[in-house]
Amino acid sequence: MAASEVKRSGGAPAHDSAPRRPVRALLAPDRYRGFGVWFGFVVVFLYAPIVTLVVYSFNDGDMIGMWRGVSLRWYQATLADGSVRKALANTLIVALFATLIAVSVATAAAVAIVRGAGRFERLSERLIALPLAIPEIVLAIATLMLFALIDLGSSITTLVLAHAVFCTPFAFMPIRTALAQISVSMEEAARDLYCTPAECFRLVTLPLLAPGIVAGAMLSLVMSIDDFITSYILSGPGNTTVPVYIFSMIRQGVTPQINALSSLLFGLSLLLVAGFWFSSRRS
């Protein structure tokens, strides 16, 4: 700063009459002072608990608030636990099958809704969004009653079906967006070049829709894996999922093992969110 100042004043000043006053940049009309800082605070607020959790999952000590050095012992203990492994397997099976159902249902519906504009299509779109408008607890106990009434009991299958219901709107949104971006003339071009409707779907619509479908699948997987309420109400003793297992652990008291299991679950979600991110960018 000082050096360049000296250099500049070395030459003859061109306009010595005009005082060199630093011009303060105008705040653009659509900006508000402090919003950026506020954004920073909120991000810290959102991440602080999760980061704390992950950091403490590597704590060697038994106490939550006491740092005793880095270790993987809680992860080892967690993964060695048979019931945790069972819960993890259940979680993944339920998520995979629920997603399979949700994505198929959502894709068929998206094609019908985006390409048609009738009253029935609009009504169906509302129906798909309905799971978002009802508290999960209400939906879960309603489903429980229905299953009890028709004597279905609790099994992995009933859990898969219940998960598929609330996964569908999440699978639907990115698929719908992707489909709306595929110009109708793309499909018309295919028909024009001698495709039957089925060939048109298989050779043109589906490949163009693929990133949207993958994005929808990722969201659906995350929703299912992270679901607690529905699983808690509907899962029986044999088919506990990870969140339900964590809940029972918390009720028994806070231990570092919960940190490890929670961090694992968080890592899994993060992985899927990353998958969603990349596939939705491609579409």
Binding site: S183, M186, A189, A190, D192, L193, Y194, V204
Partner: peptide, 20 residues
């Protein structure tokens, strides 16, 4: 006749080339 049964081809306004 559906489009695939007509010996007529179209050059679309924004070309509609298959991006994949």
């Amino acid at each position: 006749l559906p489009p695939e049964a007509r010996s007529i081809n179209t050059v679309f306004q924004h070309y509609a080339l298959f991006p994949h």
